[in-house]
Every structure is written in C-alpha cells, then in structure tokens.
Design a binder for these strands. Structure first.
Lengths: 194, 194, 194, 194
DNA sequence: AATGAATGAGTGTTCATTCAT
DNA sequence: GATGAATGAACACTCATTCAT
C-alpha cells in the first residue's frame, strides 16, 4: 500500500480520466473504464458507488492540484504586478503541464455540478477566490490596481488564457498555450493595473 | 414562413432549445422535445432526420445571428479602437440579449462538433474570423494595433467577456454581463493597442 | 384490431402470466417475458412502463374476473345459506377453473402491494367486501347468521378453501379443489349460521 | 450459547428476520443483513454458506417452535373437541406471540421451498401431520369426528385462522388474532365434529 | 472466526430511430 | 406531412459469492 504499486482505486481514476478526455463523461461508459483499468465493474462500484462519483473525485483532485500550484506562485510574489502575473502564469503553466486534467475540468463542470459533490465544490471555489482576493486587496486599496466588482477580476486576469486553453485543448488552435505565457500575463496586468 | 403562425419546424426548434438549455443536449431525450413541442416523434424525424440535427440547426442559426450582429457593429466602426471595442460590444450585447442561445452555443460546441455539421461549422467560423481579420490588418500594419499570432486575437478581445458569460449564464455570477460592457471593451483595447 | 388476433398488449400479458406462474414475479426476468411473448423489450415498456405494472395489470384483471363471478352467484342466491354457500362455491369454482390466475393472485399480493396500483387495489377490495356485506346484513339482523366482527367473516367463509387452494396450487395436495366444493360450503355455513 | 451475549450467528439470524419481515427474502440483500447485524460479509458466509441458508435456518427454527407448542397443547387434550380446539389455539397463540416469525413463515414458503432444505422440510411436515393424525384417528373411528380425506383436515381446522393471520400480519386487518381465539376454535370443531 | 476488496453474470430500463398506416 | 407502436442495442447498476489476509 506504499507507492510500490498503484491502488485499484487509482487505476480506476487514471483510466476514467483517459476515457473522459477522449469521449467526455457522457460518452464514456462504465465498461470502457473497466476495460482500461483492468478492474471489475463490481470493484468500481465498491470504491465509487456510481459513475458520476468517479468524475467528481477526479474533478476535485484536479482542481485542488491547480489551486495548490496557484497558491505556491502567489506566495513567491511581492508586487501587485507579480501577483497578477503569477495568476496568469499559474493558469498557463498548469494547463500546459496537465492538458488532460485541464480539458477534463474545463469540459466537465456542468456534469459534475449536477452531482452531490457540487456543494462541496462551490464552497472550495469560494474559499480559494477569497484567499486570492485577500492578497490583492492591499494593492487595490493603495491604487496600484483598479477597484472593480469582485466577480469580474477572474475574467480579466485569466479570461484570455482560459479562452485560448479551450481553443488549444480542443484542437482548434495548434500552438501550446505556454508559448503565450507572457502575452496573457501582460494582458492580465494591463487589464487591472491602477 | 410568414409570421402568421409558427411552423411545426420552428415549434420543434423552440422546444429543443428550451430542453437543451435546461438539461443539456445529452440530457435531453427526443421524448422531451416531443412533449414540449406537441409534435409527434415521427414528425420530428420527418423534419430533422435525427436528434443531433436539431441541435446542429439551432447551433448554426444562433451563431449566424451573432456573427451578423458582430458584422453590423464592425461596419459602423472606423478607427482601430472602435473596431476592437465593437467586437467586445457585439459579444456582450448578444449574450445579454440572447442568454438561452448563448448558453446553448457555449455548452454544446463539443457535442455539435461530433456531428456531420462540424465541417460546415468550422468552415463558416474560418470565414468569419478571416473577414474580421481583414478589417484589422491595415491597423496592425500601421502599428495602431500589436502584431500578434493570429490565433490569439480572439482570446484577447473576447476572452474576458467570454469567461464572464460562462459565469453569468451558469448562475455562478449574478450581475448581467451588459453591466460590464465598457470594462470588457477597455480590456480588449488595452490588450491589443499598439 | 378487432378480436381477429391478439393485440401485442395481450400477448405480453399472457406471456407474463405464464412466467409469473412458473417462476414468480421476482424470478421472472423481463427477458423471459419478451422471449415468450415475441414482443421486443421496447414494446413492453411502451405499453406498461415497467415490469411491476405488468404484474399489477394482471392482478387487477384476475381479481376483477373473480369478483364478477362471485357477484353473479350471489345474485342467484336467496336464503342466507344459499348466499354463504355461493361465496364458497364462487371461490372454489374460480380457483379450479383458473388455477394459473389463482396461483398468481395468491402468491403475488405482497409484490403487487408495493406497487402504485396498491391504493386502487385496496379501494376496490373494500368496495367488493362492502357489497357482499350489504347482502348478508338483513340475514344477520334476522338472526339467521351470527353477528360477528366484520373483518372475520371472510376468513370463516373462504378460509378453509383458501388454505386448501394454496396446498393444491403449490402441489402439496393432489386432489382438485372442486372435489371438496360441498365440504367447504358446508363448513362455511356451519361457521356462521345463527 | 449461554445467555451472556448473543453469538454472531444469532445476531445474523435476528438481523435477517428483521430484514425478511420488512422487505421479503428476495427484497433483502446480503448487504442489508450485514449492516443490521454488524457482522461482515465474510462472517455471514462462514456461518451460513449462502443467503438462502439463512432463510432456511430461520424457517426451520420457526416451524419447529410452532410444532413443539402445538404438540404441547395436544398432550394436554383428551376429548376430540379438546384436541381440535388445541390445534386452533396453538395456531392462534403462536401467531399472536410471534408475529414476525409467523409472517416470515407465511410469506416465505415458496422461496424456501426452492432451497436444498425443501426436502428436509417437507419430511418434517409429513411427520408432524402424521403424528397429529394418529392422535385424531381413534376419535374418527369412533364417529366423534367426521371421516374426511386426510389432506383436508388441516384446511378445516386452521384455514380460517390461517386466513385471518395473513390479513392481520399484512396490516389489512387491525384486531390482534388472539381476540378471535374462541371463534376460530369453535369453527374448527363445527367443521369436523361427528 | 473475521474481514472487506474483488468479481462478473445478470437485471431493469432507456432511448434514438424506423416504418406501416 | 403526421402519427405512434415497435424495435433492440446499449447502459448503469446490483448483488450473491469468493478468497487472500
């Protein structure tokens, strides 16, 4: 049970991510996950209870990883500009490094939101947003950043990168998002600097 | 096709949009559309051939409306700034005026893209993008706008609005997107001005 | 659609009764009914909605037939003794003539009672019991029959036949119940005569 | 086996009876029994081998208790009338005192009969019936009781009580069966007295 | 004796689609 | 153009049972 070999549970999660990526949650059948993971149907239900819970577990895990990385970059930032750019960098870096998880998160929110996990999820989202906002507040108060409605900062900071990520992850754009890391960071800073 | 009374075909499309909005394409059954439209299953298949074609028809129609509106605003623009802002305005205005169609387009691309209509759709998208780009080219050449990789302009111009639209249309943000019309337009211009 | 040939719906009902008789409701799979009836799964669900509704339809139909026959015999009775014996005769005759339906009704009440049809069923039962009781009331008032708690008459009149029917229908007794027609009728009259 | 504390085996049997009573044998899953008993699945299979064996054990135990009680009352009877009434009393008393076990026995025969225990069960039943019949034979020979086909005595003696027990145990009748103890005993004697 | 992860055949049900009328 | 009964492949999920620890 050490890291010697993957647990059944993790094997199922891995297989599910691969399937969801390729076919979407609705397009993935339990049988597909079973075949890919090597587990039995019964085992899948023993561990997760139903198909949606597998998706939810994956979603929660992915988002947690992204948020942790974002936090990490924010911790190293000092000036307002550094904080703003860290936000853009975190997004771009994470998507570029974890395209499968990113694609899954981007395209599965609506499905997972109908799940029992939805409440927990939106609570966590609020906590994260709040934490980030606390970081920016002093800079806004000091006029180094524009004071805008709270709900709009996210769209200004990561909206362009978010948009491009969808393009890239769906194959409609060819260039790896990390090539535009600086452009998105600059756009973010331009959009909110005081 | 007069306005005398809605055609069966249109009744089906309206019912389908309402269902897709509420349950998603995958979550909508032919039976649901049948019940809402008052048509019979047979009638639906007579007019559209299959379920996906209904979605595709709706998608094509919605996108065409949006593009026409965008074009309209572009036609009235002269300076680079006006053109850029017209793009943001068009997006914000259209989403605000047609939230159901916007939600449908935003959340159904992945499904519709697996359809036969996909090729036609991406061709039209290319044509539209090309037309818009032709409009901007002189301004880029003259240095009034930054020269950037072509595939990234869309994300910079409408990315933030796009992102906020998702928030608003999914209920995660409360303020009507049109309240932020100017903010998104300014951000668009800041991101690409020369 | 006249009586020229059985409707799909009736074919399904017939096949279901045969299966339920042989394997019980729980022991019968939808697939078994499908195979026996020649209908498709879809057709079964088109007509009945789910497995339990087939059982419920059969139950309602069978009970209605029995009650109609009981009523018929009661209509021909005049004295208290004739009425009491008619009740026993009706039970014995019906079971002997319709062993499959009788077996189904006897062994499926608990399953059908968990169904949506349960309320309707117990209402009909109450109506029937009330009608029969109205018939007996004058005889009870005149002392030609014992006055006993209402809920107990049924058990005294048909209890022995009911019990033997279970024995015979389950194969634990060999003699056709109709051989004991008079014995059960006599026992019924002995149990309640004034 | 002292009364100090229940054995695992007994805890499982108790939980199973409660579940069977509430949901029926088919409606009860091994998981339900596991949850109610606090035992593990493995433990249940260690003690009983399979689900049906739990039901069979319960069935055998319940029937043995009833028969022992019946025998006890018969041992105290001397006249034909006392013997006949003892049979009715035994049934009524036992059902009233053990409604859960009675309900289980009444509604589970068909399931248990498909079990390996079926042969053993019907053998024991035959032995019991034979013993009871031996008791009555002299009285029949002496004309104090009617001579009737052997297979019909049971239905005449306990049929009404049996029928009412079903009514009461299923909730369709409200009055505790023991209130009708004498009525059923009288009816039994009336039905078979010489 | 006990545990609980793992198994996999089997179940009821759904639903897009067809087609005779 | 319209109807709705019929089709059947596909699906998510259940559950008795096994077995390594």
């Amino acid at each position: 049970m050490t890291t010697e070999k993957k647990s059944r549970k993790q094997e199922i999660l891995d297989a599910a991510l691969a399937c969801f990526t390729e076919f979407g949650i609705d397009g993935t059948t339990v049988e597909m996950i079973r075949e890919r993971s090597g587990a039995s149907v019964g085992s899948m239900y023993h561990h997760f209870g139903n198909k949606e819970s597998i998706a939810a577990a994956l979603y929660v895990e992915s988002l947690a990883e992204y948020k942790a990385y974002h936090q990490e970059l924010m911790d190293g930032a000092e000036t307002a500009e550094q904080g703003v750019k860290a936000t853009a960098y975190a997004y771009v870096d994470w998507v570029s490094a974890n395209p499968e998880k990113a694609r899954f998160v981007l395209y599965s929110r609506s499905v997972v939101n109908k799940t029992e996990a939805a409440a927990e999820l939106s609570k966590r989202a609020r906590v994260h947003i709040e934490a980030v906002f606390q970081w920016f507040e002093p800079h806004i108060a000091a006029g180094r950043m524009k004071r805008l409605p709270k709900e709009i900062y996210g769209s200004l900071l990561t909206g362009p990168a978010h948009d491009y990520a969808r393009l890239w992850l769906s194959g409609r754009a060819k260039t790896d998002i990390k090539a535009y890391r600086e452009i998105f960071a600059e756009a973010a800073w331009d959009a909110v600097k005081g």
